[in-house]
């Protein structure tokens, strides 16, 4: 009995110590400049921070744990900034005492595995892609595909739909676009980082989707533009909202950003998919940085300094890894937003 009691006392002591260590770690993280969240924006933040530490000596630690994790951590105040591919609504922000601003513009496209059809040869439209991902268009020689691709020899192959299996901002952007162009998609599936997919197989990450597409003849999938460039995948051209056929390009993503008025939207709550304009790429996206209003002013100041530096000096770095810099008017609006909300 005595032994038991002593054991309990010891266990309690151990628990107390572990708890204290946990608290200390939390306190530590809050004072150093750490960020967490989106895996999409990770290459950009990593590239920027590598140069930033050389220029200023300030180290930025960014953990790419996913947008959901980033939002949770900034809410808990364990990081100085969180990054999400899906913007929070102004109501959510107000409720949690947060602010958000866009970082850079990116895009994604559909890739396919069709024997004899070259990269960029296939033309698709938003409503058609929605029907394919709903499982309604099942064969490559379906009249709906043939109509958009006169002169292309489409095989009589079954379409294998490939999607992301992990929760992802890429999926959110893709599904948000399909929701805008297909009422059926909007009502049946909707938009989120993970979805209740009607058909298809799921690959983990861009590389998982690309691996499936490269190995399954007749498959179609969606991946980030940077990934298409790097791996020279067979990409599709898309028909945009103006009815023009466009190829994915940084210019196309920036055109999408130029058409939304970031300066007017409350808390920059705008999504870049399906924007008008002749040269606009329809599946463009963006990553938001989220800050806590109640964080120490010095911390917020350091974060905004870093992103300010990125907006000014990091443009060519961003372009080299297929991220489009924000238009100057947006950068100006972000600075005004910092002033009103953080007093910085």
């Amino acid at each position: 009995m005595i032994l038991n009691r002593q054991l309990f006392a010891k266990a309690a002591a151990v628990l107390a110590v572990t708890g204290a260590v946990g608290l200390a770690a939390t306190a530590n993280a809050a004072v150093s400049l750490t960020g967490a969240g989106s895996t999409w924006v990770y290459p950009l933040v990593a590239k920027w921070s590598a140069q930033y530490v050389k220029d200023t000596g300030i180290q930025i630690n960014y953990k790419s744990i996913g947008s959901g994790g980033g939002i949770a951590q900034i809410k808990a105040g364990t990081v100085a900034f969180g990054a999400s591919d899906m913007p929070l609504t102004p109501e959510e922000l107000a409720k949690a005492g947060l602010i958000q601003f866009p970082t850079a513009i990116a895009g994604e496209d559909l890739v396919y595995n069709l024997p004899g059809i070259k990269p960029g040869e296939l033309i698709l439209s938003g409503p058609l892609v929605a029907d394919v991902y709903l499982g309604k268009v099942k064969k490559w020689n379906d009249p709906a595909i043939a109509k958009l691709n006169p002169g292309v020899k489409l095989p009589s192959m079954a379409i294998t739909v490939v999607h992301r299996s992990d929760g992802s901002g890429t999926t959110f952007t893709f599904a948000d676009y399909l929701s805008k162009v297909s009422p059926e998609w909007k009502s049946k599936v909707g938009a989120n980082t993970s979805l209740n997919w009607p058909v298809g197989v799921g690959g983990k990450g861009n590389e998982g989707v690309a691996a499936f597409v490269q190995r399954i003849p007749g498959s179609i999938g969606y991946v980030e533009y940077a990934y298409i460039l790097e791996n020279k995948l067979a990409y599709a051209r898309m028909i945009n909202r103006d009815g023009k056929v466009v190829s994915p390009s940084l210019k196309g993503f920036q055109n999408a950003a130029a058409h939304v008025d970031f300066t007017k939207a409350k808390d920059f709550y705008v999504i870049l998919t399906g924007q008008p304009g002749p040269g606009t790429w329809p599946i463009s996206g963006c990553t938001w940085q989220i800050l806590r209003k109640a964080a120490p002013k010095a911390t917020n100041e350091q974060v905004t300094k870093f992103f300010d530096w990125g907006f000014e000096k990091g443009q060519s770095m961003a372009e080299s890894i297929a991220f489009g810099p924000l238009p100057p008017s947006t950068v100006k609006a972000i600075k005004a937003y910092w002033k009103t909300n953080l007093g910085i």
């Binding site: 959901g68 899906m86 980082t193 993970s194 799921g202």
Partner: peptide, 18 residues
Amino acid sequence: MPGSSIASVIANEFTEAT
């Protein structure tokens, strides 16, 4: 046909479970 297991869905979706 493709399917999912408990462990795989947790690994896939936990990071973005908002």
